[in-house]
Design a protein around this nucleic acid. Structure first.
Lengths: 192, 192
DNA sequence: GACGTGACCCTAGCATCGCTAGACAAGCGA
DNA sequence: TCGCTTGTCTAGCGATGCTAGGGTCACGTC
């Protein structure tokens, strides 16, 4: 039994190594540089090993996305619980979200830009993704305003922040005034 | 002289054919299906011909994006000029934007999702892109509210709508309540 | 009207991509 | 010690974006 257990442990460890290496490589050189050959070389195994852990490259991206979602949820909760007063909380939430996206661009891409083969907005959505949305909802639900469904409000707020992230990072918006934009967004959207 | 002119005309015509075919193929089967081989086959020329018109695939995507930007600007102006009253105008603007993205997903991707090698938010930004932003600004500037820079307000509003588009199309938001979301967005963001 | 020249286009190929088949070795249980 | 399962690697497939080189056709000139 213990032999099998050791093998399972080693397999799990290698799987973590694959995901971590993919993420590292993506953050360093972009997702285009994350080829199965390069990834295999970095983990010091041959290509087919990757396919014994994941169905394909998509699934590796998906694994990075899930890891990122868990981290983001934790970061958002940490930020909101450290702030008191709805307004401070919402501002902290938005800033933390943008900050996470800026510091982990490749992970953010894996979550929302690339196809990681993940299901969203269904009952079979992976837990970390639902939890990240829940983290948003916990904070934003209390400032939705009367007669506005908290979920709907959260979706709209999320979309707005997400739009800021993607347009800024793609060079579509000048990067300087992000702070002002967030301020305006919170001011107008949240009913405080 | 007339011979050269004819050749130039034919070249320009073929360039239009390339862009139109790329767009058509992308709308039919997605950008992944737009390979240089398939594209060459559809226009009934060999691959290298593409490279005598464009530096590479990126530039073809960029050309589709520019075409789309011009169309979008026209659509937005048509919608806003047909509506009277700031509120109706802004709502019409947002709806038209979302409608354009929904009807031309591949073109929208070329504009904002893919790398078309285009410069944004610089002085060397291509004219159609600046003009599309101007079309937004014309309508949104009048509802920015006191003390808020119209450009900044337009950026935020644009980001919000863009976020709705991308998250909805990527399956991150349930597609049913788009109308409600737009309503909420206009209600809260615009100072009417 | 024949000819040299230049523009134009196509065939063929390169390196790289994601992914897989099949051979081979290592380590387990009997 | 032997047979077998499990696991890994080498080699290769089709497809990608892109390019080099040769060949053909039509033009302008004498």
């Amino acid at each position: 039994m213990s032999v099998q257990e050791r093998k399972q442990r080693e397999r799990a460890e290698r799987e973590r190594l694959i995901v971590a290496t993919a993420r590292e490589l993506a953050e360093q050189q972009g997702w285009d540089a994350v080829t199965t050959r390069r990834l295999a070389e970095r983990i010091e195994y041959s290509q087919p090993v990757l396919y014994s852990h994941f169905r394909g490259k998509r699934e590796i991206i998906g694994a990075v996305a899930l890891e990122g979602a868990a981290e983001m949820a934790a970061a958002l909760r940490a930020a909101t619980s450290a702030a008191d007063g709805p307004r401070t909380r919402v501002t902290a939430l938005a800033r933390t979200y943008l900050d996470f996206a800026e510091r982990n661009p490749a992970v953010y891409d894996a979550m929302f830009q690339l196809d990681g083969g993940l299901a969203f907005a269904h009952e079979d959505t992976p837990e970390p993704l639902k939890d990240a949305f829940a983290a948003l909802l916990e904070c934003l639900g209390e400032v939705a305003g009367d007669g506005v469904h908290p979920g709907l409000f959260t979706e709209v707020f999320w979309a707005a922040v997400h739009g800021l992230v993607t347009l800024t990072r793609a060079g579509r918006l000048p990067p300087g005034d992000t702070g002002l934009r967030v301020e305006l967004l919170v001011d107008r959207l949240a009913k405080i």
